[in-house]
């Protein structure tokens, strides 16, 4: 670990200002950042502790639910309103990490967590995300857990989280303060980036911007499912995960908000799926068609080929469950 300065931000404006300094990084729960610092993947000069700022509450807002940037994952997952109205979010959070990590991890930190690609975390291997221009070690290496959608020649890493996948299905918004453009809101679906030619940029946060909250829209009707496929039954990143909010009306699909984890550099949301599914009667053929659309540009580079049939089958399973009408 490289020596660093540690300062505590006094308010969000102070945090935004201090983190805009070169070599400065914000720290909240630290569950990801400290690991990366020990590995010298992250080598900040200054850690700006935002953990004591007043952003740790969940409030009902007129347009839904506002989850402060510093609310722990545990607190979100057990919140009665989240459990009642947004169960897909509670389930997604509980499917991630361990109880100990969830107790420390925060809303904003979770959104900003970095890929678990082991070429990224090993500084003695090439990685365009960590060391731009050094190459991608995962391509041609061990890349079983890597992306099959939205990859680039630069990077095939996945976004590792669960919480954001549910938030993408819910069409939640990220509230951002500071920076040159002033305060702004970004849909979670647009918060994370694809790697393209700049794989070191995980998301759209600019230097000096601070996440203050995530807002969930008004509760919607329908069945909410979070299905995470993983090698062991806890404490493993998703091979494929699906957050689904599906409503039926008169035997036809009335709503189908789907987001996918484990497939791409971001929580994957494809608007073509809802277009295809809504208004149709559920059937295995329809689900196959949905999978065709989802995976029409899927591209596995070295070891992750299995994710293509796995995503297809998992989507079928989730849609089957979501559209079942109990008799």
């Amino acid at each position: 670990m490289r020596p660093f300065d540690y300062i505590r931000a006094t308010d969000p404006t102070d945090a935004a200002e201090r983190t805009s300094a070169p070599g400065a990084m914000a720290i909240a729960g630290g569950t990801n950042l400290i690991d990366l610092m020990k590995l010298q993947v992250e080598t900040p000069d200054t850690l700006v502790d935002v953990g004591r700022l007043d952003m740790g509450s969940i409030e009902e807002a007129g347009d839904g639910l506002r989850i402060g940037a510093l609310v722990t994952n545990t607190a979100t997952a057990v919140h009665p309103k989240v459990r009642a109205d947004y169960p897909v979010l509670a389930r997604a959070i509980l499917a991630g990490a361990t109880q100990q990590l969830r107790n420390k991890a925060t809303t904003a930190g979770n959104l900003c967590q970095r890929t678990r690609c082991t070429y990224f975390t090993n500084i003695d291997q090439p990685c365009n995300k960590r060391a731009p221009g050094s190459g991608c070690g995962a391509m041609g290496g061990v890349a079983r857990l890597h992306a099959i959608l939205g990859t680039s020649d630069q990077c095939i890493a996945t976004y590792p989280g669960d919480m954001a996948v549910a938030m993408a299905a819910l069409d939640a918004h990220v509230h951002i303060q500071g920076g040159r453009g002033g305060d702004r809101q970004v849909p979670v679906r647009e918060f994370h980036r694809l790697p393209g030619e700049t794989p070191w940029q995980d998301n759209v946060l600019e230097s000096g911007e601070i996440i203050t909250a995530v807002t969930l829209p008004l509760p919607v009707k329908g069945k909410q499912i979070y299905r995470k496929v993983r090698e062991r039954s806890s404490y493993a990143f998703a091979l494929v995960s699906i957050a689904a909010i599906v409503a039926m009306d008169g035997g036809r699909i009335a709503r189908a908000d789907l987001a996918f984890g484990g497939l791409a550099h971001k929580p994957w949301h494809d608007p073509r799926l809802a277009d295809l599914l809504v208004g149709e009667a559920p059937s295995p053929a329809l689900f196959e068609k949905a999978a065709d659309v989802l995976l029409d540009e899927a591209d596995a580079r070295g070891g992750s080929e299995f994710k293509i049939p796995l995503a297809r089958r998992t989507l079928t399973a989730v849609l089957t469950e979501a559209t079942e009408t109990r008799t």
Binding site: R116, T118, N122, D124, G140, V142, R232, S233, Y235, A236
Partner: peptide, 19 residues
């Protein structure tokens, strides 16, 4: 890794012992 033989999952997050 097939190219340099380095162990690509050298920790308890990626080497999956049962939980």
């Amino acid at each position: 890794d097939p190219r340099d033989g380095h162990l690509a999952n050298p920790d308890l997050a990626e080497y999956h012992v049962p939980v």
